[in-house]
Amino acid sequence: MTETVDVKIGVVGTPGKWSTEALADALEAGTGFRLVIDMGQVTLDLAGGRLLYDGMDLATLDGLVVKKIAESYSVHALDRLEMLRIAEAQGVKVFSRPEAILRLMDRLACTVTLRNAGAPMPPTIITEDAQAAFKAVCDFGSAVFKPLFSTKARGMFVLDHDAPDAQARIAAFKAENPVMYIQKKADLSGQDLGMVFLNGTYVCTYRRIGESGSWNTTINSGGKYAPYEPTPDLIALGHKAQAPFGLTFTTVDIALTPEGPIVFEVSAFGGYSGALKGCGVDAMALMADHVVAEVSG
């Protein structure tokens, strides 16, 4: 951006966190306006149609960028997205649209959308029945139990079919997660991919290389970013996976297994750090340019 545009665009995120503040910086560079919004401090006046934060009605802004809706995924975070629909209904452009993000935060909603789009995924069982869950573990040999609301492998664990305490661990998981999401453990060979898209256009792909001894490659578990050059077929798979969600910025998590590539999930929030550290791409600046152009156009 060489000149500032007179529009007011706020960032919904976590005040003080690098990704939120960096995106706010990029938008400020293009508009001269800066506002970081903690949804935990937002009040909805439904009758008045006002979304209030620190004395400001967010429905008077030109745009909102949702970098992070909450520190952890939960049904409460879904409620925060519903609140943003009030501002959207009054003409505020929201990136990505709340209804699009809603389809991603619940792991099952994301999975069903990917399955209906024909994206290859690991064998997966969803059940509320403990015996059906145990049978899935036996059939898979080794399974990953995943909460419906979680990121970066939080709350997940691997369970082998011959574990002596398998049924007790299933019961403990079910007590916290009545709907159990059970996926066959994939052979990741120590890495998986993050494929970045901006408004449906391919940007870049980075690798997450797992720490030795860790079953997952997340940065929280010691994983590291590295560059990766995908084939055209792999990029086409990423396009196919992200297309049904209609997100402004997204990352598709893909693993290359001996049986072929599989898609784990599509993210509404992640990928900025991976793009920068793994690809050398400033996705914050790209996103800010796109949003300012959309709002001012």
Rank of each mutant, 00 (worst) to 15 (best):
T231A: 13
V203A: 09
E265H: 12
G222I: 11
F245G: 07
Y206M: 13
K277L: 04
S296I: 03
A243W: 01
Q242A: 14
S221C: 11
G280R: 02
A288N: 09
A236M: 06
K224F: 02
C204W: 04
M287E: 12
F245S: 07
V291T: 05
S214N: 13
G194D: 13
A255Y: 04
L247E: 03
N199V: 02
Y206N: 10
T250A: 15
L198D: 00
V266E: 02
Y225H: 15
Y272K: 03
T251E: 13
K277S: 07
A241F: 00
N216Y: 11
I209V: 15
M195I: 14
N199C: 04
E265I: 03
K277F: 12
G274Y: 01
N216Q: 09
G238F: 04
A255C: 09
T217R: 05
F269W: 04
G271H: 01
A283R: 02
R207Q: 14
P261D: 03
G274H: 09
E211Q: 15
A288D: 07
Q242Y: 01
M284K: 08
A255G: 12
A288E: 05
A285P: 03
V291H: 00
E265C: 11
F197V: 06
F269V: 13
S296Q: 06
V292H: 03
Y202N: 06
K224D: 05
T205W: 10
C204K: 01
C204S: 13
F264I: 06
A236F: 06
Y202F: 15
H290F: 15
P244H: 03
T217H: 08
L276S: 14
G271L: 03
T251W: 01
G194S: 14
F249N: 03
I209K: 14
V252E: 06
T218W: 05
T201E: 15
A236I: 08
S296T: 04
Y206T: 09
A268Y: 11
G260I: 12
N199D: 15
D282H: 13
M284A: 12
K224G: 06
C279A: 15
E259D: 15
S273Y: 06
E294P: 00
I254K: 05
T257A: 11
V196F: 10
A285G: 02
L237I: 09
L193T: 10
N216R: 11
I235R: 08
A243D: 00
L237D: 02
I219C: 09
E294C: 13
A255P: 05
A243S: 05
M195G: 08
L256Y: 08
V295T: 02
L193P: 12
Y202W: 12
F269D: 09
Y272N: 00
C204H: 07
